[in-house]
Amino acid sequence: MSEWLQLPFVQNALLGGLLAGILCGIMGTYVVANRIAYLAGGIAHAAYGGVGLALFFGLSPLLGVLGFTLAGALIMGWLYLRERHRADTAIGVLWAFGMAVGVLFTDLTPGYNVDLMSYLFGSILAISRGSLAAMAALIVAIGLFVICFYRDLAAVSYDDEFARARGIPVTALQLLLIVSVALSVVVLIRVVGLILVIALLTIAPYMAEKRCRSLASMMVMSSLLNCLFAVVGLGLSIRFNVTSGPAIICVASLAYFAFMGWLALRRRA
């Protein structure tokens, strides 16, 4: 194992996994605490539409994904905020539409065959320095946002009705949260793939939520768990020469099942 760690691409992959884990630990805390995992899934899948469009129109993939994802996120976010209990169908439609658009435009692009799998599960072993820098920059930006508005975001996430009565700009903060999720998706989709983004956004935060007493501690615990999943998953994928994204997801999911089993046993005892 140690000779693997000498290789630059393994080091980059590890760093990428840790950064992705931290970013998703922070954003996932809000996703889970606000019960918007489905919305986050919709955003992540709609992002694929941007990939296809960018290819077809010869734009830079980053710009295409950024534009399409932000537009999708704002539409879905607006629908969600307007009618929370009825938005799931519309989100489901946009979820499917985004994926379909992505595939169709990729088909229509002459001579280009993008690998769908690489957007679903990422290619963390081929991560570039630029992607690492983008992730680090986004962690700093979102970190500042969270520190500035920590109490307001907590109030909005916990009880938006009360926050509104206190004069907190609830809708603006909710949209900013959704935009932050979208930006995280854009940065992470190339690296770890949209399926892994959803896994990192939901599994660890869900486990952490059961034990924590504040959003801050939930972010720390989710980030640590995510980093653990990433490192163990990467190690296993290198050791057994399998795709790393699914390996990380399997590690996280198995930990989740074990945790739920443990909770059930404890409740019975």
Partner: peptide
């Protein structure tokens, strides 16, 4: 103001 408690997420870590 004490809103209806259905607005507050019961499992929220707080």
């Amino acid at each position: 103001y004490v809103p209806q408690d259905i607005h507050a997420n019961k499992h929220f870590p707080i």
